[in-house]
């Protein structure tokens, strides 16, 4: 469906894309996850024909896109700031892609009107066609941008930080709605995000980008279970890096009990510990409860072990108190040999 091979792009002296490889299957919903400056927006813009790579290939449906200008790619693109046409009504914004078609392909007036009304209903903005973008809320503008992109009936939808400018509640609602829309319309979608929750929750597969490269491309489960390197491990799942020493098939910590690890070279290492990897129980031990807070998901427990603060899961039935001594068991850990730059994504 979408195949990217060996894509390079330099801005001035800096490599924004440094050999990107990526292949999307039809109907997939894929997240491009990475810190800012990792090249994810540049990659998205290259797919849309808004950036021109120095080397490499973009193929869509098997066709090389190098000589195809943006306007002929037929891709739906939602910009980070929506880029709505401010002097046009919502109706005219959505109709734009239809009105500018060459005469022989352009639907009639009535047909355009019908299609726009359909799209307005689809993005749950019926009757809003007469408004101007300035008169809409952020979430509404976002949906207008989406409707405008869908008007040309694209098979590929690209979204640049689609939820970036929205508040937390609207963002959660829109996420699930967008995923539903993708499934219903049978689109192949790629969205850029720096929010790992968003990527892991929504996408079929997540491509993690760093320094202009896709460092790992896998399902959310596989990413969490087997991060490709320390950078990915540090970026995902709220993992805290803790120094350790690998000896005899076990990782030894300064202030935590050892845990079995497989296939890691002996010597200094760095372990990434997520909240679910740590079980805390009451009783005399080397750790202490630093904070315990109740929220909608239960008790959130932070323990202090040696110098490090770690989130941990409390054993069932225990109501932890601040300052209480406790024992921490390391259930699992992803350990990588220590080197400079570890923990960066």
């Amino acid at each position: 469906m979408i195949e990217v091979t060996g894509l390079h792009l330099r801005y001035g002296g800096v490599a924004a894309l440094d050999g990107v490889e990526l292949a999307l299957r039809p109907g997939e919903f894929v997240a491009l996850l990475g810190a800012s400056g990792s090249g994810k927006t540049t990659l998205l813009r290259s797919l849309a024909g808004l950036e021109f790579p120095d080397a490499g290939q973009v193929r869509i449906d098997g066709r090389d896109m190098a000589q195809v200008p943006a306007r002929e790619r037929g891709i739906g693109f939602v910009f980070q700031n929506y880029a709505l046409f401010r002097h046009m009504t919502v109706f005219e914004n959505i109709a734009f892609g239809l009105r500018i078609k060459p005469r022989r392909l352009r639907p009639g007036r009535a047909e355009i009107g019908r299609r726009v009304e359909e799209l307005l209903a689809l993005v749950r903005l019926p009757g809003m066609g007469g408004r101007y973008p300035d008169q809409l809320s952020g979430g509404q503008r976002q949906r207008v941008a989406l409707a405008r992109a869908l008007a040309i009936e694209p098979r590929v939808l690209l979204l640049d930080e689609p939820f970036g400018a929205l508040d937390a509640k609207v963002r959660k609602e829109l996420r699930h709605w967008l995923r539903g829309l993708h499934d219903r319309l049978g689109l192949t979608s790629l969205f850029v995000t720096h929010d790992q929750d968003e990527a892991l929750e929504l996408a079929d597969r997540v491509a993690v980008m760093r320094d202009g490269r896709v460092v790992q491309f896998d399902t959310p489960e596989a990413l969490l279970a087997a991060p490709a390197d320390a950078g990915v491990a540090g970026f995902l799942g709220d993992a805290v890096p803790v120094e350790c020493e690998v000896r005899g098939g076990q990782a030894w910590f300064a202030a935590l009990p050892p845990v079995a690890v497989e296939g890691v070279a002996e010597g200094k290492g760095i372990a990434f510990l997520r909240p679910v990897d740590l079980l805390a129980e009451p009783g005399a031990g080397e750790a202490r409860v630093a904070a315990a807070r109740r929220d909608g998901r239960g008790v959130r427990l932070t323990v202090e072990a040696g110098e490090v603060l770690l989130e941990a899961v409390p054993s069932p039935g225990w109501v932890p108190q601040r300052g209480e001594a406790c024992r921490v068991t390391v259930v699992a850990a992803r350990v990588f040999p220590r080197q400079d730059g570890a923990g960066r994504a």
Binding site: A48, R71, F85, I100, I152
Partner: peptide, 19 residues
């Protein structure tokens, strides 16, 4: 961005300018 949005939607340079 506005011009880019127009281009992605299928507009020629002239259409993007004009509209």
């Amino acid at each position: 961005e506005a011009e880019e949005a127009a281009a992605v939607l299928g507009a020629t340079r002239w259409q993007a300018w004009r509209r």
